[in-house]
Amino acid sequence: MKRFLFIIILVALVTNVFAASSTNYVSSPEAITSSGGSAESSSYNLKSSLAANITGVTSSSSYSVQLGFIAASVTTTTTTTAATTTTTTTTTTLIPTISTLYFDGRTIEAGDTVNNAVTIITTLSAAAGINISTSSVEVDSISTFLAALTGDSTYETGSGTLTYKSAAVFVDGSHTFKVVAVDNSSNSTEESISFSVNTSTGITGAVLTYPNPFNPNTQPTQITYQLNQDADVQIFLFNSLGQLAWKQHYVSGSEGGHAGYNSVNWNGISNFGGIVPNGLYFCRIVVNGQVVGKGKIAVLK
């Protein structure tokens, strides 16, 4: 009888060998002394009544567990780490947009000269809609809400077109124009630019040409200048003998005759129909019968 009981106890305590193939499994080792197997799962969890709670990650590796101590001992052929997954949620807020600012139908660079009675146009848009009670136009630090615009200054809610024309002409000097767009969700954006006004007849700065020298057989040259106000402009080119080689007229408000930056081309062809000879040519820019700008152009073929 004692031999029979001893055999039963021995069978209960014999090594228990098993293989794990599930995605997750739990081994409760209170009833065994040791175990071993081949792990094909992506994760496993071992629990011991003796305060062992070990979580690891393995892949096609063998492991063994021996209990009976204060903590379980786990050995793997791969590095076991405790993994923490962090989920980051990114929320995109759609802010209002302000399109390019057009001054009398043209774009300008900061500091450019414009007419003293310039008209400025842009377009506002927002997914939540533009709030005309909080959106504004600011001229030289004086703000006007879109809902309060009067006269020739308007905001069209359907198209989002903002048109600004000052009730009084701008005085000579530097000015700043700013648009603040606020939508119905209180998101906002702004766009600003500085500009200059000079009511005197003439050109601000030098007359510049590029390339210079230039070869008419390969490319034209550009004649550039900053005109103070819209004006009828005439450009004359004379050769070194004082003979007229080329003459061109530009209507007020057109390219070559509008306030601000102007750029016109000369292809090296005279008014008589042929390419001019090599040499130095003298440029004269005339407004209202007055020479307001001078320059030199070298032709080298």
Score class of each variant (00 low, 15 high):
Ser62Lys: 05
Ser263His: 00
Thr33Glu: 11
Asn262Met: 07
Ser61Thr: 05
Lys2Ala: 15
Ile70Val: 13
Ala231Lys: 02
Gly151Phe: 05
Thr33Pro: 06
Ile7Met: 05
Glu109Gln: 14
Ala39Asn: 03
Val197Gln: 00
Asn262Gly: 04
Arg284Gly: 06
Ala147Gln: 08
Lys2His: 09
Gln66Met: 09
Thr209Gly: 02
Ala168His: 10
Thr161His: 09
Gly129Phe: 07
Pro29Asp: 12
Ser135Pro: 15
Ile203Lys: 01
Thr92Ile: 12
Thr91Gly: 04
Glu109Asn: 15
Ser133Cys: 04
Ser49Lys: 15
Ser174Cys: 03
Ala168Leu: 15
Gly68Asn: 01
Ala20Asp: 03
Phe282Arg: 07
Phe145Asp: 03
Thr209His: 01
Thr100Ile: 04
Asn187Glu: 07
Ala31Asn: 09
Phe177Gln: 01
Val299Glu: 02
Ser136Trp: 00
Pro29Val: 06
Ile275Gln: 07
Pro29Trp: 03
Ala51Cys: 10
Asn187Phe: 03
Val197Lys: 03
Ala71Thr: 05
Thr55Cys: 09
Ser28Tyr: 06
Ser28Lys: 12
Thr113Ser: 15
Ala83Asn: 07
Arg284Phe: 05
Asn215Met: 11
Gln219Leu: 09
Tyr164Lys: 08
Ser22Asn: 07
Ser240Leu: 14
Asn217His: 08
Thr90Cys: 09
Ala206Cys: 02
Ser240Phe: 09
Ala82Met: 11
Glu255Cys: 02
Thr81Lys: 12
Val17Ala: 15
Ile54Lys: 11
Arg284Asn: 15
Ile54Tyr: 05
Thr150Phe: 02
Thr76Glu: 15
Val118Met: 14
Asp104Tyr: 01
Lys165Gln: 14
Lys2Cys: 06
Ala82Tyr: 08
Asn271Ile: 08
Ile285Asn: 05
Ser49Thr: 12
Thr93Gly: 11
Thr86Asn: 15
Thr80Gln: 10
Val169Leu: 06
Ser42Thr: 14
Tyr261Val: 13
Ala72Leu: 12
Gly274Asp: 11
Leu244Gly: 11
Asp112Tyr: 04
Asn45Glu: 14
Ile130Arg: 04
Thr122Val: 13
Ile275Ser: 04
Tyr102Cys: 15
Tyr63Phe: 09
Thr84Ile: 11
Val182Met: 04
Pro96Trp: 00
Val292Tyr: 03
Gly202Pro: 02
Lys2Val: 08
Thr33Val: 12
Val251Lys: 10
Ile121Tyr: 05
Ala19Pro: 00
Val171Met: 10
Asn45Thr: 13
Leu149Thr: 00
Ser73Cys: 07
Gln222Cys: 08
Leu244Arg: 12
Gly205Thr: 02
Asn16Lys: 10
Ile193His: 04
Ala206Gln: 06
Thr97Met: 14
Val74Pro: 06
Pro220Met: 10
Ser21Gly: 08
Thr23Val: 13
Tyr225Glu: 12
Asn217Tyr: 13
Asn131Ala: 13
Thr224Ala: 08
Ser192Leu: 05
Phe195Trp: 04
Thr92Cys: 08
Ala20Asn: 06
Gly151Asp: 03
Thr15Ala: 14
